[in-house]
Amino acid sequence: KHMVLAPVDLSRSCSLSGMHSSVNTGEEDEQELLKKMVGHSESGSKIISKIDYMDLVEKYTRDGNVSAAYDLLQSLRDKNICLPISVFKNLLAASGEQNDIRLSCRIFRELLVSPGKEPVSSDCYLNLARAFINTDDCMHLMTLLKEISESSLPCRLIVLNRIILALAESRQIDKVLMILQQMKEWECKPDVITYNSVLDILGRAGLVNEMLGVLSSMKEDCNVSVDIITYNTVLNGMRKACRFDMCLVIYNEMVQFGIKPDLLSYTAVIDSLGRSGNIKESLRLFDEMKQRQIRASVYVYRALIDCLKKSGDFQRALQLSDELKNTSSSDLAGPLDFKRHLRSHKH
């Protein structure tokens, strides 16, 4: 069917009536479209609108015949007929839904190298990841990622990091760890953003041991340096997993590396120590926090008050309660303060 397609001529010599007659009205089915194209080819006419081709590709896509749609796109490209990027995006979404890993990788590759300046959207990354949900076969995925790593794309590391995030969003943690391990052997190696992203993924999933393993390998990697985001991510992961015993260890290690704790660090470790019963150390860090003029949040105050009550130290709990009542809202850290810290770390 695809061999009979005539090349498109959108030159000004085409009459408006001729162009209008060649446009699919949406009422013609696949056979009518093909007959029209064959007729144009046999008559030597070059007046075939891109809309006709788009309609046929989209019909294949809607019908679930993604292979035929892709083959048609390839034959059109051989004839120097380029359809809009949206056609490729729709086809990627359809192939992702069908878990067609080979075709999904091919389409994603073409989106990356498309001549347009439009960057690949988040939906495209998610649709690529969706194709691999029901399979452990990562050969096509790893081949694609290695090609990206060895390519001349200026944003190749960003692309790899975004694929990792897309896989994490679809809960494919094993593939994330596999990619991180492989990247160490590739030309485009993981950076601190890659490691911190993986740590955050593992923390959200409650995979504490895996998180500690990634942190350990990160410290051994001479190409990257741990930072405040690294330790805040690990601290929050430990706290969410109720591994309060590890929070103080991670905190002390951070201080030994010369990284000064911030609002996020203090909040995580003070809460963890208080909930583990280490009230003395929790109060010490609370005082240190205030000495460094880092405003505590209402959450920290209430967490400490609850812990003091549980330990039977009602007098100190009452003192903190009075201190909280006498502190104006402007002297307390609020949601915006936490967001500012997150934004500043990202930049």
Rank of each mutant, 00 (worst) to 15 (best):
R316Y: 14
Y231Q: 10
F132R: 00
L167G: 02
S122W: 12
W186N: 01
D100E: 10
S21Y: 08
M289E: 06
M3E: 12
C14V: 15
D227N: 15
D29Q: 13
F314M: 15
D221E: 12
D137G: 08
E210H: 04
I81Q: 01
M54R: 09
Y70L: 01
D100P: 01
L111P: 00
Y251V: 13
E28R: 10
D262Q: 08
L56S: 06
A317C: 05
R284S: 14
V198F: 10
L160M: 14
D227W: 07
C222W: 13
V255A: 09
T327D: 03
T267H: 06
N209P: 00
I270P: 00
V269Q: 01
M246I: 12
S217K: 13
K339F: 11
L153Q: 01
S282T: 11
L177D: 05
K290N: 11
H2K: 11
G18I: 07
Y266R: 05
S216F: 08
M142E: 09
L177T: 12
G116L: 08
E27V: 13
H345C: 08
V224N: 07
L72T: 04
K89P: 01
I164M: 12
L34T: 05
V249L: 12
I270R: 00
V226K: 01
D174C: 11
T143G: 14
S321F: 10
A131Q: 00
